[in-house]
């Protein structure tokens, strides 16, 4: 009797200990920095904050970030859906290799990803003369930034979809195909309802990652203000110029965007769980 009481008491202590450790950790590692960003941004008052945000280069950087994010999300959505569908619903040689290749951007450092693109499309590359002839600029230009963002974020959607599709199997699709349903019909009526929430979750994650991408973009951008500067790069430049308030003000935009994405994520997750 005493022993069991002791045990339940111990369990309670362990429980509260674990809760306090994780809360403390999150508070120090995550909340504190975020709050600091906001406080620093408003240190010299709201007007200075507004001025920093309304700065021409900040606005351009924000627009470029949104542009790159939009391209990356749209292209990766299409690619992710096709890749996940192909990998899970068909049998073919080299399937294992394909799934491994999809994961490369997660394992490779973004800086290296950036360098790869510089080498592929830069002046040293054999493709460069062709690009120059066609008057297409990739390195140190907007297309390069978009490419880098796509590269870094491309596994996010397919990685969310593959486990869900694998768990589902192919029976329902086979049943639909046997009744004469066309591929688009099978996809919209049978497969998509099943992966809807995982898909949205993947899109949200991809968006978050695309907005914050620094490494690969940094290599490819060339840091031309008002032209090839994204928000994270702009923050870095301001910070290096000791313009702390503007740096934190611009950071706060990213923080706010991140919080919005987090809220969307929670809503998606909630609905996904409810639908089971």
């Amino acid at each position: 009797m005493d022993k069991t009481q002791d045990q339940s008491k111990n369990a309670k202590i362990v429980k509260w200990l674990l809760i306090s450790i994780s809360t403390l950790f999150i508070a120090v590692m995550l909340l504190l920095p975020l709050v600091t960003v906001i406080i620093e941004a408003f240190r010299q008052g709201f007007e200075v904050y507004l001025k920093a945000i309304a700065d021409e280069y900040t606005v351009k950087a924000t627009l470029l970030t949104l542009e790159a994010t939009l391209f990356a999300v749209v292209i990766n959505t299409v690619f992710g859906l096709f890749a996940a569908w192909t990998v899970t619903k068909f049998k073919f040689h080299g399937k294992k290799l394909l799934t491994t290749l999809i994961d490369i951007p997660v394992t490779v450092s973004p800086i290296i990803a950036g360098l790869i693109f510089v080498l592929t499309f830069g002046r040293q590359s054999f493709i460069y003369p062709l690009l120059e002839k066609a008057d297409v600029k990739i390195v140190f230009a907007v297309p390069g930034i978009v490419l880098a963002t796509i590269f870094v974020t491309f596994p996010f959607i397919s990685r969310e979809l593959i486990p869900v599709l694998e768990a589902q199997g192919t029976d329902e699709e086979e049943a639909a195909a046997l009744m004469g349903a066309s591929l688009p019909r099978i996809f919209t009526k049978v497969t998509f309802p099943h992966i809807k929430w995982a898909f949205l979750y993947g899109v949200v994650l991809c968006t978050a990652r695309a907005m914050g991408e620094f490494g690969a973009v940094s290599v490819l951008s060339g840091h031309i203000r008002g032209k090839t500067n994204t928000l994270p790069l702009h923050v870095e430049i301001l910070f290096n110029e000791f313009k702390y308030v503007p740096a934190f003000a611009v950071s706060s935009i990213l923080v706010i965007l991140a919080v919005i994405v987090l809220i969307i994520r929670s809503v998606v997750e909630y609905h996904g769980k409810k639908d089971g």
Binding site: D171, E172, E174, A175, A176, K189, V190, P193, H194
Partner: peptide, 8 residues
């Protein structure tokens, strides 16, 4: 396992 369409 019937393979009924579970979202219908």
């Amino acid at each position: 396992n019937y393979a009924l369409f579970r979202y219908m």
